[in-house]
Design a protein around this nucleic acid. Structure first.
Lengths: 238, 238
DNA sequence: ACTGGTCCGTACGGTAGTGTACATAAAGAG
DNA sequence: CTCTTTATGTACACTACCGTACGGACCAGT
């Protein structure tokens, strides 16, 4: 497969680069296969690569020393992992967990920073993405604090759905509970409520979205807000 | 007063610039007086200035369309307001509220971005600060979700105390409730608990810290973590 | 000294979540 | 086809915080 052209197998962020920059960039990337559940990094780890998901996606999880875990962002083919490289960062403060298996492009940190210096269009794009990321993390903070589990679950399923391009999702209640920062039993209850309303269907780690508009209505406004921020900062400007 | 030399009246971020860069930078700054409660920006507003608090401090508040408000970060003389200018951003996604009156330095956005391009040391510093900010916002998200009001209040009072250099704090329960994202009554209860333990004293909008170590013990670990991140990224590297 | 405004104390019932625990059900391995 | 593992369902007592509401305390102004 030619990753430089296939539209169904690309990274939207890189796609919005000018053609020349994009070719240069891809030339220095390698592809990697990511497995479900794989931990790409723990807080404090040094960042070895910038990663651009193609058909997979990765959760960014804030962890507390007391043990709490809360997903603050998610990167699929609309984004990247290792954003703080853009700020010259060497270590990550977030845990990075592969939530959807698949393929990604990656480039070593040093090489990535080289490209950033040489290619203004790339740097500008990455900066805009980081801006989006900060907004979304802030939004996420408020959302987790104020919205109930059911709405947050709906939002989260939609976000996952977007990043798997409609395939049924491989995700257990246990896993979701870690991301939402609640008990597994709370996820079960919320998931059942959504299922009873015919919005989703699931069985043993496989979730499928039945009624997308309904799910959007059940989710908090944060889902839409997130997309708007992205559209405004990345798509409209590019 | 000569803002270029007075140690008790400076911005720690700018202080860690090389002397020459610092002088250049200060030459293009003006001073402004900020009043308690003043809204510097609402979400969606365009950013007019980069702001560097001297003896005042500003809260960064995430707001939801449903009305929820949650403080995700705070900038005193250890930081700045308008950080996304470093990423080329033109609009803020956070509300900016003056929590402690006082003086700040400011520079117009365009001028600031000029300086960033011309002065690598400045750009590097600002990028590191932004990295800190992102880490702290993520931390904040998890903290607000998992820790109880009393611990979060203790943490918040310590953060305020740091930024007012020990002066008694001018802050009401009402105000705190907005920052912590809880009812005023919840603040009252938590504050009373802290007062009964002799950690703080307050009356009608004036809070003083009596037992700092005790307050640190009552706060969640997030307070210490925040400081460690800052020390590691800004002080140690500079 | 009264008055109005701001701020704090407290109370009540209600609810969404918690920790723990155990039972059931489906998938996969042999 | 059984056994084991993994995933989901459910239950119970409990807690932190909610929305609302009202009374009291302190301060400032006339």
């Amino acid at each position: 497969m030619d990753i430089t052209t296939s539209p169904s197998y690309s990274n939207r962020l890189l796609d919005s680069l000018p053609e020349e920059d994009r070719q240069h960039f891809l030339a220095d990337c390698e592809t990697v296969e990511l497995e479900f559940g794989q931990r790409l990094a723990e807080p404090g780890d040094s960042i070895t690569h910038a990663l651009f998901p193609l058909d997979c996606f990765v959760s960014l999880v804030a962890t507390l020393e007391s043990g709490g875990r809360l997903e603050v962002s998610m990167a699929g083919n609309e984004g990247m992992v290792g954003g703080s490289l853009v700020l010259g960062g060497r270590v990550t403060s977030l845990q990075e967990v592969v939530q959807g298996a698949g393929t990604a492009l990656r480039m070593s940190s040093t090489c990535f920073q080289d490209h950033l210096e040489r290619r203004p269009a790339l740097e500008s794009l990455m900066k805009r993405y980081l801006n989006v990321l900060m907004s979304q993390i802030s939004q996420s903070a408020a959302c987790s604090h104020f919205h109930d589990v059911e709405a947050r679950l709906a939002r989260r399923l939609l976000m996952t759905h977007d990043r798997t391009h409609g395939d049924p999702l491989h995700i257990t209640h246990e896993f979701l509970s870690g991301m939402l920062g609640v008990r597994r039993a709370s996820v079960t209850r919320a998931a059942k409520a959504l299922q009873l309303r015919g919005l989703i269907d699931y069985q043993r780690g496989r979730v499928s979205v039945h009624d997308r508009p309904g799910l959007e209505a059940a989710s908090c406004r944060c889902y839409a807000t997130d997309r708007e921020i992205y559209a405004q900062m990345i798509e409209r400007v590019a």
